[in-house]
Design a protein around this nucleic acid. Structure first.
Lengths: 219, 219
DNA sequence: AAGAGTATAAGGGTAAACCCTGAGCCTGAG
DNA sequence: CTCAGGCTCAGGGTTTACCCTTATACTCTT
């Protein structure tokens, strides 16, 4: 387990920043070490902080995302910057790329896409929301690669085990789950045993905590 | 402890919705029962759902917040709607009020203001972000009332109970906690019984989930 | 065809969880 | 002082969790 990715969020909407911060941290993606409401504030922060990645809004007052990106890259050439766009049509994506952003995520996309974008960019590759690509280049014959939906899940658990796990994480007992799934209690207990073994948990509570920490369930 | 406030979030930016949802639910303010990406989707939802409050973005494609608000109020005159504004200058606040919104929160404000706004509106009063008021009316001599910072801590659990709860939330058994605290297992079981009763949980797993959801512990 | 993996289920055992009652001790409020 | 509430502990009961082994049937891969 390497140390957490350090992120700075730059957006003029505080509610959006706080939401993204929660999203990122809840997903265990990274640690938000700072927030900035415009490019100027962000550059000041950058002088004394070392983020691994920046989530940068493009439209901002005082200093917009493009200018901030260009100046930040001048300071830290290796800095990874992921742009957040509203797809309002006002953004100049080419110049943003020239300024040094590693990718774009449209704000209409979900957390799964944000997660994929962050991981991709941190891996050194560039990332572009498919929605954005569709807007810019229409003559693309590239297929959508959903290859790594979740290549990190070691397929540790089977589908059935995960299903049973969901119910345990809702606080249900083996008996209740057995009733729900029309199965024998012994069957559910078998699944639990496997779950305990695979997750290296001593009891069901530890199993549930494991599931929560590893985002195997929604709470 | 009344049942949780049911909220619907209407905003075309999924990331924003998900963030707000997390914010609202993490703070224990309410339960987000649905999300909609535009006014049309929201009105469809409203036909079969009964939210206590709606967080409504003003600028949206397909059907904007004003139209959606007017139609929603026509359906449910008592529905509380809180508008989310970007302060872009394009919003017509007067007409939004005529449409039936109970208040405005600017997206540049923080979660504390959102929390205050939600509580105020649910209480039947209207709420307007001070920042918005400053924009519209400059000759206002109202003072900012930071009255209710956090009057919600019911002190539901005693210190000892909370201490025991921490250990349960680490996956320890009653026996292990008894050893740790140099107490009888029966004592720990007594504390657990009280915890189960007070949290209205059927078993320890539900108790742990309760503690996590209500942020009584760090996980 | 053979083997691996999964889902199902059972028996039988110990430990723990859960529930109820009752009770002694201490402290702070009225 | 009295009383309420919190912390401590116990007995005795039922239920569930947990662990072990074994076994059948199905699917997929080799």
């Amino acid at each position: 387990m390497q140390s957490k990715t350090k992120i700075i969020i730059v957006d003029d909407h505080s509610l959006f920043r706080e939401g993204i911060k929660l999203l990122v941290e809840m997903e265990g993606l990274a640690e938000v070490i700072a927030e900035a409401e415009n490019g100027q504030v962000f550059l000041n922060l950058l002088e004394r902080m070392s983020p691994d990645l920046v989530l940068m809004d493009i439209e901002m007052p005082v200093m917009d995302g493009m200018e901030a990106t260009a100046k930040a890259i001048a300071m830290r050439p290796d800095l990874k910057i992921l742009a957040l766009t509203m797809l309002s049509g006002k953004d100049n994506y080419i110049d943003m790329i020239k300024a040094g952003v590693m990718g774009f995520v449209v704000k209409t996309s979900g957390k799964h896409e944000l997660e994929k974008a962050i991981k991709t960019v941190l891996g050194g590759e560039s990332y572009f929301s498919n929605e954005l690509l569709r807007r810019i280049i229409l003559n693309s014959d590239k297929h959508q690669t959903y290859s790594n939906q979740s290549d990190d899940t070691d397929n540790q658990f089977t589908e059935r085990e995960l299903e049973v796990l969901q119910y345990f994480c809702k606080g249900m007992t083996a008996n209740e789950i057995a009733d729900k799934l029309f199965r024998s209690v012994k069957t559910i207990e078998s699944h639990r045993s496997k779950l305990l073994e695979k997750s290296n948990s001593k009891n069901t509570i530890n199993l549930v905590l494991y599931a929560i920490k590893n985002k195997l369930v929604e709470i």
